[in-house]
Nucleic acid binder design. Structure first.
Lengths: 203, 203, 203, 203
DNA sequence: TATGAATGAGTTTTCATTCAT
DNA sequence: GATGAATGAAAACTCATTCAT
């Protein structure tokens, strides 16, 4: 129980390197969300991460390599929270309304949302980016499917269509509302929520 | 008959200018979708439009100005078709399934989709971009609301929630499915469609 | 006799461009000879040519492209003089001794010599560089062959071997002496010249 | 048997260091010939030599120092073989034709040839490089002079000019042919050889 | 003694913009 | 009105060298 990777006071060279790497990745992910994939510059990354120019070239192959790695790491981390919430939620409705609440509470301004959108957009030009994202999305839909199934068993949701179909619909609906909210903050979320409640209940 | 606005032999200078302007805008919109907002270069635009370099600076204020104008014009044009379809559709289900059919038939590869996503993403950084897009989206939801209302009157859709709420849900759902499809072409659209059909019918 | 390409006082834009291009090529060729193929920098070229940075990228594809073009143009120009001399010489001996005289008189320090060596060396890595050089060399040997043939007819040179063989020997000998002189300025050119005189005379 | 200077189990630290040094020098010489003096990088050297980065800075003063040492060591080694051949040859003709045979058999592709040319070229910019090369060349010409003298005594070569002059001519001729062959692999070596045979014989 | 992570000066390249014609 | 040559600021990238361990 006394294990310590740092083994004492001074950080080893390798540990320092890992920290630098992580700082660069974090700064890059943040900048992608803030200024957009194509507007990110190495200079800005270095400044944000607080590391010298050369450190980036030393740790990463090039700009493309860096953006890719940062985007993947960043989005996976961003998706971890919603996934955990979905797995922890008691039923679909709780999960749905929770997410809507997060939207309404300013979740849209979360940097992760911007990063996510940038990455999705870029992934249609770079297959190596799409794969990990798609995997995570499937995981999310799987968790939702589980919720739906439970609700169906309890009669809270119409059991007719396969649970996976309903899960896909709920997941897509949430992301679609996010998209519409970005464009139009005045969007009537309450009305949409009420409609969903009714529809899920089965009229 | 020969004194028409310019249908004679040589195009007037003004007409030529308008044509050049339009060619530049079209080329720009296409390139935004293809390579991404930040990767578009003036030279590439000129080459694609088949106009000389200088023509761009001559007709537009600068790069930002050009991209903005092209994005707005391009997205409005791209959204015109779905809007027309929504207005022409007989009921929600027809419209919904029609769109899904378009998705399945390769609609995702349509350059307009890419342009649209780029513009939405960019609009969160540029309010002047958001306004026209939001307006068009509201128009689309309004048309959908009309469809929903008609369906409710005929009992094809549960009348409980306000029509506008259901319309918002349907619109968001479509865009959300689009997003998920971009990431995961294997997405089970059929299952989702079946679930929607059941839900809308009211269980 | 009053023809003027410049057509008056101000140089046209195109003429100015051609002048800039030529200045860049000249500066590049000079620098290749001075500092070596791989040590030439775009910055140094721009400074030497007296043109701004961007002018180089504007006129040439990239560094490789520029060096290649400059090397070819420079070496062809450098080879033009010896070729003319060979064509104008009365006999082989006159040509041979003339070249040796040029060597002794400081010809080795001529920038063209350095450029030539750099280009020959580089040409073994870049076939597109070799072709034009080889062609010019063949032209030079052809001119020499003509001289040898004339000498053979007059009995000044042994007629046994084909003239082209003797011409190749003479050409190679000159370049070989150049090479050895570069390494060892104390080389006994006189002794070598005397030997050649005797050998050519046929003992 | 086990107390030899280090032929036992573990190589002493000093021996290891010497081996590393030699590996670095060998890799450097090879790279100079392959990519050109100015294109050699420390990282490439380390990779080729199979030693860590730091080892180079540890063993050598800097890049210039390393290249110089490697070039000198490499060229001296490369010149050792021809020198031995010249000293072992029975007469000039045997030596000459032997070298021509080596040329024709692909000797041009030998890495040493490239290294030699690079070093000669560089030596005109770095006197400390020229000295050892010139010394070796003089040694080579001295061996040739000995051969020529022997031939002259046997009447196989015209005795008129001093042997050293003829030796210089033969040496330069060989290097000149090498140069021309690099540019033009189609060069008629046979014709040149025939001419040399006739000329040396004295008509 | 030996290593390799880190640095930053220097290099090439791209590109929006300007402006003379 | 229209063009495209020219510019220089800024970007990405390379790489010899340093230095803590």
């Amino acid at each position: 129980m006394t294990k310590a990777t740092g083994q004492g006071t001074r950080p080893s060279s390798a540990e320092q390197g890992a920290a630098t790497r992580k700082a660069i990745l974090t700064a890059t992910a943040a900048l992608i969300g803030e200024v957009g994939w194509g507007q990110v510059t190495m200079r800005a990354i270095a400044a944000r991460a607080g590391v010298p120019h050369g450190a980036i070239s030393y740790h990463f192959q090039g700009k493309d390599d860096l953006l890719r790695q940062a985007a993947i790491a960043g989005t996976l981390q961003a998706l971890a929270e919603p996934l955990a919430m979905a797995q922890a939620a008691g039923d679909v409705r709780e999960m749905f309304e929770g997410t809507l609440g997060w939207f309404a509470g300013g979740g849209l301004e979360d940097p992760s949302v911007a990063l996510l959108l940038e990455t999705v957009r870029q992934s249609s030009r770079d297959p190596s980016l799409r794969e990990p994202l798609a995997t995570e999305m499937r995981r999310f839909r799987a968790a939702l499917t589980e919720l739906v199934r439970r609700d169906q068993e309890q009669g809270a949701i119409t059991a007719d269509p396969p649970a996976s179909g309903t899960a896909t619909v709920v997941a897509a609906l949430l992301d679609g509302l996010l998209l519409h909210l970005i464009l139009d903050p005045e969007l009537d979320l309450q009305g949409a929520a009420e409609a969903v409640r009714t529809l899920l209940r089965g009229g």
